[in-house]
């Protein structure tokens, strides 16, 4: 169980990025954190990963307080961040060097198979496409079998088709060991496709605005009415979180006679 207890973060320059966030994520649950820019989603994830320290409150996994990177918590960044001097297989094995070689190789091969990259082990990262590299990055975090996997907009740099395919890959990987998944996204469709719950956050300072359950069976039909309803519910909450439920951008006409 991942618990965030009255978590807040104030940066050195005085910006309050996160204020009093409390939430719990059950084992094996998939939660999507949705929100506009500046709502503290990424900060929350970095605190949960132990890469940054909270100014107040605490993060815990099964009672273990996370104050520094922890073996039970894995993280996938927005970019693949593969190490270019290691082959794909070596990259995946990066976090499980302590395991015996046979076990390591078995986990790497199984993971590559699962994301459709069997035989890619000896390749260099530079030979991979963006989608392939991000699959390797996800697998690198998962082969260490963390209880909690944190993902920071992992598919935002990919095109729509690749993104949908990677979401399916992610679910297939998640099925294997069912880690708790906390996923930051700005894509409403992604939240509806993956999550059991979408938590909508509100900016300045970052805090929880609304917690929306998504009770749809998997695999989800993206064209179904229920799926569209789920998306609408998240979108409505997102609009509400930004404090402008029905407003549209104001158009300013250029002054007449302006030469530019």
């Amino acid at each position: 169980m991942l618990t965030l207890d009255r978590l807040s973060k104030i940066y050195a320059n005085g910006t309050q990025a996160l204020s009093d966030v409390t939430m719990g994520v059950a084992p094996g649950e998939i939660v999507a954190l949705v929100g506009g820019s500046g709502c503290g989603k990424t900060t929350l994830l970095r605190l949960a990963s132990g890469l940054e320290q909270a100014s107040g409150g605490r993060v815990a996994v099964d009672g273990d307080i996370i104050a520094a990177p922890h073996p039970d918590v894995g993280i996938v960044f927005q970019e693949p961040r593969l190490l270019p001097w290691l082959t794909v297989a070596q990259n995946i094995a990066f976090g499980i060097e302590h395991l015996p070689k046979a076990e390591r190789d078995a986990r790497v091969d199984e993971a590559l198979l699962r994301v459709g990259l069997a035989g890619y082990g000896p390749r260099w990262p530079r030979e991979l496409s963006g989608g392939q590299a991000q699959r390797v990055a996800i697998v690198r975090a998962l082969v260490a079998r963390p209880k909690v996997l944190l993902m920071d907009e992992p598919f935002s740099a990919l095109d729509a088709l690749t993104r949908a395919s990677l979401q399916d890959h992610l679910l297939a990987l998640w099925e294997a060991h069912r880690p708790t998944l906390l996923l930051v996204t700005h894509d409403v469709e992604e939240a509806a496709a993956l999550a059991d719950r979408a938590i909508v956050m509100q900016p300045r300072p970052g805090r929880v605005f609304k917690d929306i359950p998504i009770d749809l069976p998997r695999p989800r039909d993206r064209l179904s009415h229920d799926f569209a309803e789920a998306k609408r519910a998240i979108l409505a909450a997102l609009d509400g979180s930004l404090g402008n439920p029905h407003s549209s951008p104001t158009r300013i006409s250029a002054p007449s006679g302006a030469s530019w």
């Binding site: 990963s49 890469l51 520094a68 990177p69 922890h70 073996p71 894995g74 993280i75 960044f77 970019e79 961040r81 190490l83 001097w85 290691l86 990066f94 976090g95 260490a144």
Partner: peptide, 27 residues
């Protein structure tokens, strides 16, 4: 910095960070 952070996320010690991240990166 992002690559160094990968090392931190996998809990490398200072020495491991130097050997497994910094050394190959500066080679």
């Amino acid at each position: 910095r992002k690559i160094v952070e990968v090392g931190r996320a996998f809990r490398l010690s200072r020495w491991q960070l130097a050997r497994r991240i910094l050394l190959p990166a500066i080679l």
